[in-house]
Design a protein around this nucleic acid. Structure first.
Lengths: 338, 338
DNA sequence: CTGAAAGCGCTTACAG
DNA sequence: CTGAAAGCGCTTACAG
């Protein structure tokens, strides 16, 4: 039989109220009693029962993690890493993380995650692109939440973002430092705010550093709408090559694109980086193990998760706090494609 | 204020006991009362509070999902898919899934997942390779568990496995049907039981189908110990090529190896599949989007998860049930590398 | 078939 | 600083 708070109280010769107070590190207990209770707790290897304390406290002790189905199951492990960061951070606290996926075209009344429907979480983090009606619903119901690597323009929310702008700027700068003069950009699905920022950084850096030849700076740009894949990279580099404009480097909005670009370049017998240097963004697992290893902007995914967790817990404990934006820095990892 | 069982009871003019009985679909309530209670429940949109019912029931309502850190964060999304299968299956029930990672060299007393330490789960599924001392501990503490795609020889446990043997056999058979006569095998880390089975199927099929030229059938085999990567595939195909033995196909123990093999083959100007056909195993995401798309043995990862979930729940509800082994079938998906 | 009541194991005012 | 007691919202024997 596992010990209960009563057993501890009797064993230590105090009341259960006192035991509760010391467990929760609250004032109102003398140093000696506190000490006494603590030792009997460890002696009997006592752990308070979650359901009991939650019931009394009117909390759930859970945090939800919601991610778009496709992002979790198909794309590179970007958001899985974020999740891991959260899970790691949660180990020091008392929260458990409940991971679930949603579809993008999701119906607030029928597709609602169980833990939201039944009120089984104290807050939630939304990773990556998520349905806007979900966000609206959380707002309306006043459930604390934070957006991770996503942003809804014109709305004030808790969010933790990647420093996409400085990452993009650094990318171009690094390429310039290596002597590249004509730097292309290949992007995609610019409806994701991260991608948009990377593109904005690119155009600014090109201008600032007086790179490229045309004056609009847009001749060496390729962008499309659909979800980003390697194939889009292939498509993009071919479109750019067909223009027959000088080009000695390409900055891709993410690593997946970059890998597609390199594959195609190799197929067409271009040497990377001798003929054309390639720079990615994200530093996904595949980037490190690609041949040749990809130079890219490293995004600390675990840190994104940790920060989101911290921000969420702060918000739960202090509901009146104004929505905050936290930005996670990035840096360039030079490998062999530049 | 969210409705409680009391409100429902008052509203329906019955006792809370009756409400509880109908919620839990238990006998002892007349059809009319049952109907009455049900409608008031939906009318007031009542959901019982988890912590309260758990406290009363002495259950946690949670299931743990434990996976080796490296498997979750670095390798292809194989086990993430299994997790998703479990999560999906859990949506019809009342369990929440708690995902956590462990290291392989893990200390039962210091590294124990929180939910195990504090008794916050009713059972756990262990995905892929896990520390044996963890398994022993679960056994000792009589915590229900099931192994997913893992097996500890000589022990009787609940487990759900891939039909690796018939998958491996099918792989060779398909290759033979396409007219291949000299089929190589590239494997790795044969301490994982799945890999071992695939290899066993290979050797048997080669013999049965009277393939290959040597009589031991082992000339075209390459295996190594370390964790499987693309590089091992590259290494393996080079070692095989160096032998200068006729070879018109290679069956790889998994897709990652196969992709490494194809890359190297392409680099050396071999045509795939004309010169050498390549067959993988697992059907990971990358297999489908590889150029050329990889022929492979499709493993229904979600189904693995679902079955593990079902088996675990059965075991929780019926602790005396004998340990069971469930095998999930596989089939060959012919794409362009054979 | 139905209800009153005890109990699950905590937390939190409230007295003292 | 400490304890007695009520309460959190369910479930489950037990009477009737």
């Amino acid at each position: 039989m596992k010990p209960t708070i009563k057993i501890i109280a009797k064993q230590a010769g105090v009341s259960t109220a006192t035991v509760s107070l010391v467990m929760n590190e609250r004032p109102g207990v003398s140093a000696e009693t506190r000490e006494l209770v603590k030792t009997t707790i460890t002696e009997l290897n006592y752990h308070p029962k979650r359901s009991a304390s939650q019931l009394a406290r009117k909390q759930t002790g859970n945090i939800g993690f919601i991610i778009w189905e496709d992002h979790f199951s198909e794309i590179e492990m970007f958001y899985s890493q974020c999740f891991l960061g959260i899970e790691l951070a949660s180990r020091d606290s008392d929260y458990y993380i409940l991971l679930t996926t949603v579809k993008l075209d999701f119906n607030t009344s029928t597709d609602l995650p169980r833990f939201l429907k039944y009120g089984d979480v104290d807050g939630v983090v939304l990773a990556g692109r998520v349905p806007h009606n979900l966000v609206n619903m959380l707002e309306k119901r006043k459930i604390p939440f934070v957006l991770l690597d996503y942003d809804i323009p014109g709305k004030l929310h808790n969010k933790v973002l990647i420093d996409n702008y400085s990452g993009g700027y650094t990318a171009v700068q690094k390429l310039a430092e290596k002597g590249r003069k004509n730097i292309a950009y290949i992007g995609g699905s610019a409806d994701h705010p991260s991608i948009k920022e990377r593109y904005r950084a690119y155009t600014t850096a090109i201008k600032d550093l007086k790179l490229n030849v045309d004056d609009t700076n847009l001749d060496l740009v390729y962008q499309t709408e659909p979800e980003i894949t390697r194939e889009i990279g292939t498509e993009g580099i071919n479109a750019l090559l067909a223009k027959n404009i000088p080009m000695d480097a390409v900055f891709c909005a993410n690593d997946t694109l970059a890998i597609g670009v390199i594959q195609e370049l190799k197929r067409q017998k271009y040497e990377v980086p001798q003929d054309i240097a390639v720079m990615g963004f994200d530093d996904i697992y595949a980037a490190r193990f690609h041949t040749p290893p990809l130079t890219t902007i490293h995004v600390p995914k675990m840190d994104l998760g940790k920060e989101a967790y911290k921000l969420l817990v702060e918000t739960i404990n202090n509901p009146e706090q104004r929505p905050q934006t936290r930005v996670i820095g990035v840096d360039c990892i030079c490998r062999e494609t530049t």
